[in-house]
């Protein structure tokens, strides 16, 4: 197990290193001069040169890369090229917003996805099953930005109700306003993961319900409720938990559009704007952290599986 764990961890670190190179190179290849963006088009060449020196952009690429990597490891992300703000500070302000959005999204995913998946499996091929499956298929096809747009503009047109779009309010300062701001986007964002969880819960539970030990449990005269919740759920929930873990990683990308539409000043919006404006101090660090989170979630899943199922370690 230990060798397996070490091998997987080394591999994960290697991938992380590749990712850092890809991000760094992609950001440098983008057209547009950050110094020019910062100073405006009327800037003289001398000003541009000075700004470039301040930003450290006149140094050789490998030096810039090493410097950036060192900053990542020491949690010093430097300054935004455009706003001059300290990226770490801004990160701390925006992180709670994204975190709350993600936690709420996961909440809906679990609270709606798993129970409906169970209903669907238990009532297989009857109308509740069809209803759940149809909902799941539709939820996977609907573009989140479309639903988000409709959620914003329909009430506006019908009742003249315009939600506040001036940035997130803290949960601790104004809980009701905060929830009004976060519940719609988190529900919209939960559509796709919820549908996946529903489908997976259903198929995973159905598979377990076909096994011999379930037949034995039924033969003993246990009620359906006990069979499903005490016996079957335990075994069928493992793959579901795995997928939920991986969904978190997917949400990091999905929140980019949703945060932009609802004007929630989280990390998704931050990284989106940074990529658009070639603010690479911001973009490259945030993208690396995001991809890094995905790599480590995958690693955690792999290790958990290797621990649970020895066969995997040797393949």
């Amino acid at each position: 197990m230990l060798t397996y764990a070490i091998r997987r961890t080394v591999m994960a670190l290697m991938i992380l290193w590749f990712i850092s190179i890809v991000v760094f190179v992609l950001m440098r290849m983008m057209p547009g001069d950050p110094a020019l963006l910062q100073q405006g088009i009327q800037a003289t060449p001398e000003v541009i040169e000075r700004v470039n020196r301040e930003l450290g952009l006149d140094r050789p690429m490998p030096v810039q890369y090493a410097d950036w990597l060192w900053g990542i490891l020491t949690l010093d992300l430097g300054r935004s090229v455009l706003s001059q703000q300290n990226v770490t500070d801004e990160f701390m302000v925006r992180f709670p917003v994204s975190l709350q959005l993600m936690v709420l999204t996961l909440f809906w995913t679990v609270v709606l996805g798993i129970p409906f998946g169970i209903i669907s499996a238990v009532r297989r091929n009857r109308w509740p099953d069809y209803a759940v499956r149809l909902t799941a298929i539709l939820a996977l096809a609907v573009p989140s930005f479309w639903i988000a747009t409709l959620v914003l503009i329909l009430p506006q047109q019908q009742w003249g109700y315009a939600p506040r779009l001036d940035g997130a309010v803290s949960l601790f300062e104004n809980p009701s306003q905060n929830l009004k701001q976060f519940i719609p986007p988190s529900l919209v964002l939960a559509f796709a993961p919820m549908a996946s969880v529903m489908r997976l819960t259903r198929s995973s539970l159905l598979e377990v319900l076909r096994t011999d030990y379930i037949r034995t449990a039924r033969a003993k005269g246990l009620t359906d409720r006990v069979v499903v919740f005490k016996h079957a759920m335990k075994n069928s929930v493992i793959p579901v938990v795995t997928v939920i873990g991986l969904q978190v990683a997917g949400l990091l990308g999905g929140s980019v559009i949703i945060e932009q539409i609802f004007n929630l000043n989280g990390l998704g919006q931050y990284v989106y704007r940074a990529i658009l404006q070639k603010d690479f101090a911001v973009a490259q660090s945030l993208v690396l952290y995001t991809a890094g989170a995905v790599v480590f979630l995958n690693l955690a899943v792999d290790l958990a599986y290797g621990w649970l199922d020895p066969r995997i370690r040797y393949s």
């Binding site: 991938i15 990712i19 999905g254 990529i275 993208v287 991809a291």
Partner: peptide, 21 residues
């Protein structure tokens, strides 16, 4: 390893970065 690297990016972010090039 190259595949692992590319898959680790959230798809939309990778799309955004390449489309900006």
């Amino acid at each position: 390893r190259v595949v692992d690297t590319l898959i680790a990016f959230p798809a939309l972010i990778l799309l955004l970065m390449i489309v900006r090039l």
